[in-house]
Simulated assay, not measured.
Amino acid sequence: MADQFVVRSLEEIRFWSRIMKEHSLFLKLGFNCDDTQLINEADRFYRVFEDIENRSHSYSADSDPQTIYEFNNIVHQAVCHIWAFKRKVLGLILHCKILGNNFPLLVDHVSREANYFMKRLEQLNTGTLDALPDAVINENVFFLRIMADHAKFINHLLDPSERKLVEQARDFSHDFDQLLFQAIDLDSMRPQSQTQPLLDQFVDQNRVSVRQLRDFKKTAHELIEACRIKSIIPPLLADHVFREASHFLEILDSFDHALTKAR
């Protein structure tokens, strides 16, 4: 169990610290040049999470659990601070105190991911990870919304003349909205909805859709890197959303394995 705690903690921190680092950069790029205080804050968070990411790779599965417990607490504090920064930026945008190129939904989106990371660190350090039936629903409600958001961002950042890709992104947005509503319905029917057949079907259906979106993002990233399509999507952002889809797919695969063993 101690080894599992160490491995799970390092996996979460390595993945999400890189995501938080990149969020800092994306927010910075979306500020106006005269928003110097916000730009400096974003730069500071970039350095903080770059250091956390680098430090996480200095540990291994053999590391002392108490050391990792303390590291989790340090990371948790940093994530709390970047969550507060993101919510502050969202407030400034919604109250028309700053302009720029950061969509309010994007800022809300990245703050939701910080909140997820915070809660995961808390669960790891208190040993209160969700039981499988709850985890299946909770993770899907969270990540399906993330995937739906990604499709909307891609749609709005592609050049309008890229009509086929815009249409594909719009279709993915609609599909993942529907999958999210279905997940929310399953959530509201708990615990009666947490039967093996329903959860099996739920995971199988979502895996198919996430795999299709992951492949679309992979193709988009390759086209953007090769300068073969017109957009204002930085290659790093395209890779960022691809990695998140791949991460969600790994979670769904693990659920499928666990549900199969539980039969």
Rank of each mutant, 00 (worst) to 15 (best):
L179W: 07
E139T: 11
G127A: 02
L165Y: 09
C33V: 14
I184V: 15
Q194K: 13
S56M: 01
E70P: 00
L259Q: 09
M1T: 04
A135C: 08
I224N: 00
I13T: 02
Q194N: 10
L25T: 15
T36N: 12
R47E: 13
P234K: 01
P104R: 00
L213M: 10
V107S: 06
L249R: 04
H81W: 07
L157D: 09
D171A: 14
S188D: 11
K119V: 01
F5S: 00
T260A: 13
H156M: 11
V7C: 01
R263F: 10
F153Q: 08
I251F: 04
F248A: 05
H95D: 15
K152F: 12
H109A: 03
Q66R: 09
R263G: 15
L199G: 05
L106G: 08
D204F: 11
L186V: 15
F143H: 13
L105V: 10
T219V: 00
H150C: 06
R8V: 00
I154G: 03
E167Y: 08
I232Y: 11
L27G: 06
D200H: 13
M118D: 05
F85G: 06
P160K: 04
E244T: 05
D215K: 00
I146R: 09
T128Q: 01
P234V: 06
F216T: 03
E122H: 03
A84E: 10
G30H: 04
A226C: 08
H109Q: 08
D175W: 07
L121T: 03
L25S: 12
D253G: 06
T195C: 03
L99C: 10
R170L: 14
N54D: 13
V6T: 01
S111F: 06
A78E: 11
A226R: 14
G100E: 01
Q37K: 11
H76I: 06
G91L: 09
N125S: 09
R211E: 15
R163P: 03
Y116P: 05
E225N: 14
F202D: 02
D62M: 07
L106W: 10
K119Y: 07
N102D: 05
L27Y: 08
D200S: 13
L129N: 04
I184K: 12
V79H: 03
Y59C: 00
S254Y: 06
S254I: 00
D3A: 12
L199I: 00
D51S: 15
A135Q: 09
D108H: 10
A169P: 02
E162K: 04
V6R: 00
H95Y: 11
E70H: 08
D43C: 12
F242T: 02
V166M: 10
I68A: 01
L237S: 03
Q182P: 07
P235Y: 04
A238I: 01
L99S: 15
L25R: 15
D171E: 14
I19A: 07
K217A: 02
L121W: 01
F85Y: 13
N115L: 12
V89D: 05
D51G: 12
P65H: 02
D35H: 14
